[in-house]
Design a protein around this nucleic acid. Structure first.
Length: 204
DNA sequence: CATGGGATTGACT
DNA sequence: GTCAATCCCATGC
């Protein structure tokens, strides 16, 4: 199947759920820090947990823009959360990057996070943006040709086993199975989806 | 113009 | 398990 390279704009011009699933295993880099994506959730305007549900506003402008851009917003007044805008322009949809496995710049990540444990550097959506140095100033920048790079899974690496679960941290549309995790990674944020609680992660 | 509510995290009981 | 931190912005008076 073609079109699965995230350096190609067509990657993002698809169903946001396919984009989210295919982002698992890809590499995100910002400056000298990089990590492998191990957890993603999808959000779509048709469903009330999505910021775009309320229509086009100043806040959701990027969500309704062209696919392949970063939607970065501040959560709880404290954390920046990173999304990849998907689907056609004028459709509000994005994939929330929820967790990474650190690959490069681990010492820099440690300084930014004030933590030693590699497992905890990027095991949450607010954690990974802090570790990568991604702030809301990058909202609207291109993921194809901008400061945040998204790269395909490294050649020769076995594709991750992606397990599906329900999204977390939301109060609306909680039943939708739009959370995608690498079952083999210990860096997925908790609670782990049900299939991962049976020792699956330990096998990797 | 005032207010309320988060796609969270870390510290504390 | 509970809870505060802290900011943007959408909504309502």
């Amino acid at each position: 199947m073609s079109g699965l390279d995230p350096r190609d704009g067509a990657f993002y011009a698809r169903s946001v759920h396919d984009v989210a699933r295919d982002l698992v295993g890809c590499v995100i880099r910002h400056g000298r820090t990089a990590g492998r994506v191990v957890e993603v959730e999808s959000y779509h305007q048709e469903e009330p947990a999505c910021h775009a549900f309320g229509g086009l506003t100043e806040r959701t402008r990027v969500l309704f823009g062209p696919p392949g851009r970063a939607y970065v917003y501040r959560s709880y007044g404290v954390h920046a959360l990173l999304n990849a805008v998907a689907e056609d322009e004028a459709v509000g949809a994005a994939a929330l990057i929820r967790a990474l496995e650190p690959i490069e710049g681990i010492d820099l990540m440690r300084r930014r996070r004030g933590l030693e444990s590699v497992r905890e550097l990027c095991s949450g959506p607010g954690k990974l943006t802090q570790a990568l140095g991604v702030g809301v100033d990058l909202n609207g920048t291109s993921l194809l040709d901008g400061p945040i790079e998204v790269l395909p899974p490294p050649a020769g690496v076995v594709a991750p086993r992606v397990v599906t679960g329900t999204r977390i941290g939301i109060n609306k549309a909680v039943e939708l199975p739009w959370r995608f995790c690498d079952a083999g990674s210990a860096c997925v944020s908790r609670p782990w989806p049900e299939p991962m609680r049976r020792g699956a992660a330990a096998a990797a």
